[in-house]
Simulated scan of single mutants.
Amino acid sequence: MHEVTLRPPAPNDVLKTRDIRKAYGKGQSRFEALKGVSLAVAQGESLAIVGKSGSGKSTLMHLLALLDSPDSGELLVGDSDASTLSVHQVNRLRNEDFGFVFQQFFLIPNASVLENVTLPLKIAGVDRRERTERGMAALRQLELEDKAKNKATNLSGGQKQRVVIARALVNNPKVIFADEPTGNLDTATGSLVEDILFDLNRELGITLVIVTHDVELAERCDRRVFIRDGNLQPDGHHVTEEEFADPANGPAGSEVQS
């Protein structure tokens, strides 16, 4: 069994997992998405979780973002054990402390750009005037102020992703989770979106957790962890796209220890 040594948790870690496991289905159709993953995410860092389709990378992000719960193991948000949080506390964390940028834009097509951006504030019960002020401030930051009244359905792919980033920013989050954020964009537009995310990380100190199979995007992050078949790979192990495609490479069934 191959042991993976990750850096020990630090006082400024915003997210920590220890031996978390997650499976779907039952009987012969049961699939182990995560097989015991330990990971610490430091405040203000940019972290890439890299793996091919089906590796468990999106499952890991969903657990870190409290969009799903592990079957076993420990998940800490700051100093709080996620398993002890109430539904209200989880919803508050997701709405106020976390921002989300997905490959699928998840915009309301016939709503205006401003309405899409301010949706988290509406859910949080913020009054209309403050929603508008904060929404417009986020759009200005993404150079989309002139699109505020446009319908989301009329935007280009790059503009839609910038709207999604503005929506992620409107609550001044501590962490932004980005799942294949440039997957639906051409190379030039994707690079612009990447620049925006890393600028937010550097200038505002927002922790950035990116899930991707794109090695070049991952290399822009402060730190990379590689996941394969529900296990993290050895610390410092560089996995190429070709290696991801070859199931004969990499230590299968590795156990991650902190």
Results as ranks from 00 to 15, higher is better:
residue 29 S to W: 11
residue 110 N to W: 14
residue 58 S to W: 05
residue 1 M to G: 10
residue 255 E to W: 05
residue 192 L to H: 13
residue 158 G to T: 00
residue 122 K to E: 11
residue 165 I to F: 08
residue 71 D to Y: 06
residue 224 R to Y: 03
residue 51 G to N: 04
residue 220 R to S: 12
residue 227 I to W: 08
residue 66 L to Q: 12
residue 160 K to Y: 02
residue 45 E to V: 01
residue 25 G to E: 07
residue 198 F to N: 14
residue 21 R to N: 12
residue 86 S to L: 05
residue 241 E to L: 06
residue 245 A to L: 09
residue 167 R to A: 04
residue 143 E to K: 14
residue 168 A to D: 01
residue 156 S to Q: 08
residue 119 L to P: 00
residue 215 V to W: 11
residue 256 V to E: 11
residue 219 E to H: 14
residue 211 V to W: 04
residue 233 Q to Y: 09
residue 211 V to H: 08
residue 206 I to F: 09
residue 180 E to I: 07
residue 134 R to M: 01
residue 151 K to D: 11
residue 254 S to T: 14
residue 32 E to R: 07
residue 82 A to W: 02
residue 75 L to F: 12
residue 108 I to M: 15
residue 71 D to P: 04
residue 219 E to N: 15
residue 44 G to Q: 00
residue 222 D to A: 11
residue 137 A to V: 03
residue 186 D to Y: 06
residue 114 L to Q: 10
residue 17 T to Y: 04
residue 246 D to T: 01
residue 244 F to S: 03
residue 171 N to M: 12
residue 137 A to R: 14
residue 40 A to D: 11
residue 65 A to F: 06
residue 8 P to H: 07
residue 216 E to T: 12
residue 223 R to L: 03
residue 54 G to S: 04
residue 42 A to H: 15
residue 210 I to A: 05
residue 211 V to T: 05
residue 224 R to L: 04
residue 218 A to N: 09
residue 160 K to A: 07
residue 161 Q to P: 07
residue 197 L to R: 08
residue 20 I to P: 09
residue 174 K to C: 02
residue 222 D to V: 10
residue 178 A to Q: 08
residue 239 V to I: 15
residue 10 A to L: 13
residue 116 N to I: 07
residue 99 G to R: 03
residue 158 G to Q: 00
residue 248 A to M: 05
residue 100 F to A: 00
residue 21 R to S: 13
residue 100 F to M: 03
residue 190 G to P: 13
residue 76 L to K: 15
residue 83 S to K: 10
residue 27 G to A: 07
residue 60 L to H: 08
residue 125 G to K: 02
residue 212 T to L: 07
